[in-house]
Design a protein around this nucleic acid. Sequence first.
DNA 1: GTCCTTAGATACGGTGACGTTTCTTAATGC
DNA 2: GCATTAAGAAACGTCACCGTATCTAAGGAC
Lengths: 196, 196
Amino acid sequence: MDLTKTRRRGAELESALLDAAWAELEDVGYPAFGYDGVAARAGTSKPVLYRRWPAKVDLVLAALQHGGLFDKRALPDTGSLRGDILTALRDFNAARSGFMAVISVYLAGIHADTGLSPAELRDRLLAGSTNTGRKLLERAAGRGEIPARNWPSGIATLPSDLVRHDLVMTLKPLPDARILEIVDDIWLPLVRLRHP
Amino acid sequence: MDLTKTRRRGAELESALLDAAWAELEDVGYPAFGYDGVAARAGTSKPVLYRRWPAKVDLVLAALQHGGLFDKRALPDTGSLRGDILTALRDFNAARSGFMAVISVYLAGIHADTGLSPAELRDRLLAGSTNTGRKLLERAAGRGEIPARNWPSGIATLPSDLVRHDLVMTLKPLPDARILEIVDDIWLPLVRLRHP
DNA sequence: GTCCTTAGATACGGTGACGTTTCTTAATGC
DNA sequence: GCATTAAGAAACGTCACCGTATCTAAGGAC
C-alpha cells in the first residue's frame, strides 16, 4: 500500500483485486477459494469485491481471465518438429500452476454448481493441444520431415495429454527427461511411421 | 432399516458405515466429505463414526480400502497383447468412479493437510500401471508377438496414462473408440517397432 | 430374567465463512 | 473550497459443520 496514497481506485484497484484473486486461486484451489481470503490478500474489504463480482463464480472467471488462461499461445517455430514440440511442452510445463488452478475449478464442477459451463472450461483446458500438435505435424509434413497423413486426433494431442496427465498425477513439474521421453521415445517414433 | 431389527452392531454396522462413507466420497469428493454427510447417509449418529474413526482422514482411508481401491487386479490373459491391454483398459474404465474419488482426495492434498502420505496415494493411483503394461509386454515378447526390449517406463504406462488423463479431463468414461485408438493407433504400433 | 455395552437421537458450544449493513473518510471532479 | 462516490474498516446475523456431551434403550452375553 503506497504511503502517499491510501486508497486505490479504478483500473489500479481492479488489477490489484484480480492479482489477489488469481494468487488465491492458485494457492488454495477452488473449493477453499473465498471472499474472505481474496479480500485479505488484496488488502481490501469484502463489499468492494461483492460490488464487482456478486457471486463466487464471477470472481473465479475473472481471475482465470486475468491469469491469462484464455490467452492464445504463440506457436513455436524452431525449424524442426522436435524443436517445436519440445518448446511447446516446456512452455506448458513452466506455466503449469495456472493449469492446476483450472483443474481444481474443473473438478469442483463434479460436485458443485459452479455456474461454469464444463464445455467452456474443457475447451480452455485443452486449448493449444487440439490445434498445436496438429499444426506442428502439418508443418513438419510440409517440410518433408515426416510422412503426410491425416492424423488421428489422439496422436496429435498425445504429447500434451501425457504432460497434462503427469502434472495432475505428480503435482510437480515434469522433469525434462520425461519431456524428452515423451517426444523422443513415444511421439516422434510414432509420427515418423510409414502408414498404409 | 430392517423392521425386525432396529440397531446394527458389529461387522454389519461397520460394513454399512463404510458403504455410506464410500458412497459419500464418490458423490461429493474429498473437500465436501464430512461426518454429518456420512452419518446421514448411513442412518447413524456422529458419535458412532467418531468412536471408530476420530479424524476425517481415518474415515477417508477406511472408505478407500472398503471401496476396493487397494485391491490387486488380476492380470488379463487373453492370449494376445491386444486382447490383454484392451481388457485391462476396459476394466479400469468401468471402475472409474473409484479412481475419481481418489483423485479428489489426492488433489485435496495440495491445499490441506490430509495426513495421507502423497507417496502412498500416488502408489495407489498408479497401481496396476507401473506393472501391468510391463508384464503384458514381457509376456507378448515371450510369445514372440513383439520384439523383446527393455521398455522405457513411459511406454509401459502409456495406455493407462492416457485413460487416466481422459477420465480426469472429460469426467466421463472413455468411449470404446478412444480405447481402441489408444491401443491400435498409438500403443501397439509403438511396441511393435523394431528398435536398435 | 439381569447386566453391560454401545447404537442412535438429540442437543450443545465453538468456529469460520458468507453476505450484508453501517460508518468514516480518501479520492476525484467541478 | 464543496459535493459525490465508493474504498476500507468493522460489525453483525446466519448457517453449516465440527466435535462433544447426555440420554434412552436395543442388542448380546450370561
